[in-house]
Amino acid sequence: AGLPALVQRLDSMRVLVERGGKVYFGTLDEAGARKVAQEFASDILSQFGATSLVGSKVYYVSQRGSVKEIWQMNYDGSDQKPFSGYKSISTMPNVAPDGSKIAFTTFARGNPSIAVHSLETGRRLPFYNQQASMNATPSFTPDGKMILFSSTLSGIAQIYAANVDGSGLRRISNVRAIEVEPKVNPRNANEIVFVSGRSGPQQIYKMNLDGADVIRLTTGEGEASNPSWHPDGQHIAFAWTRGFEPGNWNIFIMDVATRETVQLTHGRGRNENPSWSPDGRHLVFSSNRSGTNQIWTMLADGTQAVQLTSQGINQMPVWSK
């Protein structure tokens, strides 16, 4: 008999849809209808064990004028709107695994520092920034209780960990080389990938949360950056210049255990900042293949590339549940 649903008009601005005891709310416009339909479809898929992208968000850096702010949009590029409003440079966003918080680097107070906001209210949350010339590239642990980041507290950019409010600071790396972009394995909170120049040009390394067992994952060819863990905790996507002119980045996937790599983009501009979708079947990334830096998505095999943004300059996307 199909899927029974009761639709009621609550007032001039709200609608209600009820199915199986669950209530879906939306505004009486196209956006509200889309929201209800997406949530409804997502719940149907979840009943069959599938992960839906419906309702997932992409946060990214957008320059539409003289400043760079954090923007947000739906997974399909719809409903693009600003999130931050610092009227400065805000960059390098990272979203907590449960989708409740976002951390990013902002220059609003002069030196680059870390800002943490609630994604439910939009309000800034407390985070103590160290007295350093740079605190940047924040990343949440899988439980969302800690943030890893790079800081020049010791004089050169190193990897640190702190509680989600900035307390309990602990230094993780200790070398005379710039180290940034720490990312914690979603399946193993003791394992980190990061970017380091300890062997020369920047490469991607792996180490334990205590700084031990450092292993270089990339070969040392070219430059490697922007590591992003697959939800399975066994693969990473990253940007690499291997085999190309300096500055010409492409997206690769690596099996971390075997270090085998697969190249996904080929000779179509500068492609970087990959981030996995919640279902692990898609990637969002930035590319200048259309003439300016824009946000794109593709399947995990590199096919079906779709451009999501076109206004301004857009980069550094992160896909959130």
Rank of each mutant, 00 (worst) to 15 (best):
P97R: 06
A237P: 09
Q80S: 09
G20Q: 04
G211N: 02
K81C: 05
A1R: 11
N208C: 05
L209W: 02
A37E: 09
S100K: 10
I192Q: 03
Y128N: 15
G49L: 05
D232I: 03
T303E: 15
Q72N: 02
F238N: 07
H282K: 12
F244Q: 13
G312Y: 03
W240I: 00
Q315H: 08
R281A: 13
G20L: 01
P274M: 06
M73D: 04
L217D: 00
G55T: 10
G302L: 04
A1V: 12
G99W: 01
I204C: 07
Y24A: 10
G55I: 04
K101P: 00
W240V: 00
G291L: 01
I156N: 14
E221K: 13
T303L: 11
P186S: 13
N174V: 02
Q130L: 14
A108P: 00
G247Q: 08
Y205D: 05
E179C: 02
L308R: 04
Q311F: 07
N250E: 15
A161C: 10
D279Y: 03
T91W: 07
Q8F: 07
K87A: 13
T261L: 05
H230L: 02
D165G: 06
I215S: 13
S199T: 14
T303A: 15
G122P: 00
S118E: 04
G168K: 04
D301S: 06
T297V: 09
K68V: 02
K68C: 07
V284A: 12
L169V: 15
V318H: 01
N293C: 03
G243K: 05
R281L: 12
N288R: 08
W240L: 11
H235W: 12
N111T: 12
N111V: 05
F194H: 08
A1L: 11
S228F: 01
A50K: 14
